[in-house]
């Protein structure tokens, strides 16, 4: 198992090594020591590697991940797993603002809390937060799922498209065009699958409420034609 100590190895060497993994390689379980809040740790992975980061990271950890499994044994700064394509990113601690922003696929699990703008402009990513999330989360979310075991801050799902939001605790306020929706059997089944994928046990899908777009904001309404 390659061990890269960022106290002695430049960050760029780590990321270059992760980008140079040939198809079919076996020795693909990396351990990263002493990240000490470094930016851009393990960005741009495009192979099914695993990376265990032993400590806290700064901006943009695991950004653009495509197929890797990155676990941060600490907390993450702003923009963790930004624009993830596929794969899994797990944060054992808390995540700062815009976690999972613009993500197109894959699974982001935050075991602590996430700050503001979690899942902003999400486009297919699944995000499961064990704790609570801050304000303006899932802003303009287009597709994918945001599951929150704790509470949500102000303006959840503002200007939402078709991302689906599930919150177990309280929602401080809903953003423009975001409404609570009926939880039907298909949603309970979907949520059960997401919770299982994220390793959440002892929490039932029935404990959540579902939120989504009222579809009044992003659809063209012929009655408004005079306004243009």
């Amino acid at each position: 198992m390659p061990v890269i100590d960022l106290a002695v190895t430049p960050l760029r060497d780590l990321n270059s090594a992760l980008h140079a993994i040939p198809p079919g390689a076996n020795d693909i379980n990396y351990e990263v020591l002493n990240p000490r809040g470094s930016h851009a740790v393990a960005v741009g992975i495009d192979a099914p590697v695993t990376v265990d980061v032993k400590g806290s990271v700064g901006y943009y950890c695991a950004g653009m991940n495509d197929g890797g499994t990155v676990t941060v044994h600490g907390s993450a700064g702003p923009g963790v797993a930004e624009n993830m394509m596929s794969g899994t990113v797990v944060i054992e601690g808390d995540a700062s603002q815009y976690a999972g922003a613009t993500g197109r696929g894959g699974l982001l699990v935050i075991k602590g809390n996430a700050a503001s703008r979690c899942g902003i402009s999400m486009k297919g990513i699944d995000i499961v937060v064990h704790g609570s999330i801050g304000h303006m989360s899932a802003f303009m979310g287009q597709s994918g799922h945001l599951v929150v075991l704790g509470d949500a801050g102000d303006a959840l799902g503002d200007s939402l498209y078709e991302a689906r939001l599930f919150v177990r605790g309280s929602v401080k306020s809903l953003g423009a065009d975001c409404i609570e929706k009926e939880m039907r059997q298909e949603h309970l089944t979907l949520l059960a699958g997401l919770l299982e994928k994220a390793g959440v046990t002892q929490v039932k899908p029935e404990e959540f409420k579902r939120y989504g777009s009222a579809r009044r904001l992003y659809n063209f309404n012929i009655d408004n034609a005079d306004a243009y």
Partner: peptide, 9 residues
């Protein structure tokens, strides 16, 4: 206090 965790590390 730090703008980033790096300052506290």
């Amino acid at each position: 206090f730090g703008s980033e965790y790096r300052a506290l590390a």
